[in-house]
Design a protein around this nucleic acid. Structure first.
Lengths: 150, 150
DNA sequence: AAACCATTTAATAATCATTATAAATTAATT
DNA sequence: AATTAATTTATAATGATTATTAAATGGTTT
């Protein structure tokens, strides 16, 4: 199957933790998970996979290009399936909801800006922090970003 | 003097640690410091100001609008003087050098993107990670970003 | 399929950045 | 100068993540 092939290509053995992680990200493409999200998810499903293992697997998958890591202002890293399509993020500071977008104009302008200054772009991160204005936020209580002022 | 006034307005007493921190950022406007940078700087100057105090003061200054906090992909927060001029950052992944820029087109487009989706922009962070291509990087050894793939 | 061996996991402990706590000190006010 | 609340110091605690090491497992070979 697809999963095994991905792992093989990355030179990684098909172990239970890795299959579970891969499966989760494939099944829920587009979702952003922290290491702990993944850990807890498995716990509730009956799989006791150590948190350190989760971290290791996520990092390996990132290096293998299977996942992407992002650092929002929440203090913890989030991972999502790497579907090859670069995009930026809108992050709701009230509920943590994440939406993706891509704007060619912005992409192009970034390259120009770096080039104007003699730099070679390696990567970029654009996070727009918003208020989604939903009164019924599932986790309006568990706010993000206690450090960043608005 | 200027410094005392700033602190007063923020409802903060003019203590030695706060004056030293303020002074440092004023004297080196445009520079980005981590809490530890500040801590070490004072040490070499003979002032033993606790790291926890530095953290507290930096956070207070941030809340008072005197400093701005940024999270690059280095894992630690950096602070710079808030001169009122919003700007984004080009960060060299080889040497840590930071350059600032502002592009009205990008700013405008961001607002549009959020608005199109019914969100209210609270803040944003745009970091372009580049290679400054300087062979003589002062700290080409002490690289940044071991986590983020290029 | 049993044996082999390198890889991987699990269970910790360690680390790094940052925040909280509680006792001692100090700035602003009386 | 005395009072009091704010602040610093020193230290412990926390939260996210990484390192360590012995035990277990996957893939391969016989």
């Amino acid at each position: 199957m697809n999963m095994n092939k991905n792992l093989k290509k990355a030179g990684l053995k098909a172990t239970l933790p890795r299959l579970r992680v891969m499966e989760l990200f494939l099944n829920e493409a587009g979702t952003h998970f922290t290491a702990e999200d993944v850990y807890k998810r498995f716990l509730t499903e009956g799989d006791e996979i150590g948190l350190a293992t989760i971290y290791r697997v996520l990092t390996q998958f990132e290096h293998a290009g299977l996942l992407q890591r992002h650092h929002f202002e929440t203090g913890k890293a989030v991972f999502e399936l790497n579907e090859g399509n670069h995009h930026d993020h809108l992050v709701c500071i009230e509920c943590g909801k994440v939406e993706e977008f891509l704007d060619e104009g912005i992409e192009k302008r970034q390259k120009e800006i770096a080039a104007e200054r003699g730099f070679a772009v390696q990567d970029h991160a654009l996070y727009i922090y918003v208020d989604c204005l939903r009164e019924n936020c599932p986790n309006r209580a568990a706010k993000l970003s206690h450090t960043k002022p608005l």
